[in-house]
Amino acid sequence: MSYDDVEIEDMEWNEEIQAFTYPCPCGDLFQITKEELRLGEEIARCPSCSLYITVIYNMEDFMGEPDRNIKKNLEPSKQQSVTVA
């Protein structure tokens, strides 16, 4: 059973693992790549446990010339920046 339904806009783009992520109750992250979204995959899995979530998104947003489209519409508005004190 899917742990939760999560809209793509509530997922965060993770540069390091090149995937959209969402917190998993085990402490790790549910993950789904742009390539998977392009193929119509809607399940984001956690690499550390058996749980998965259903991602709600428009497949068209990831078709065609995807990268520019996605960057504009779907990546979290705020770029993660870290201030080192």
Binding site: S81, V82, T83, V84, A85
Partner: peptide, 9 residues
Amino acid sequence: DYQSHCSPV
């Protein structure tokens, strides 16, 4: 703002 910090602020 939407910045992250690695020391308490």
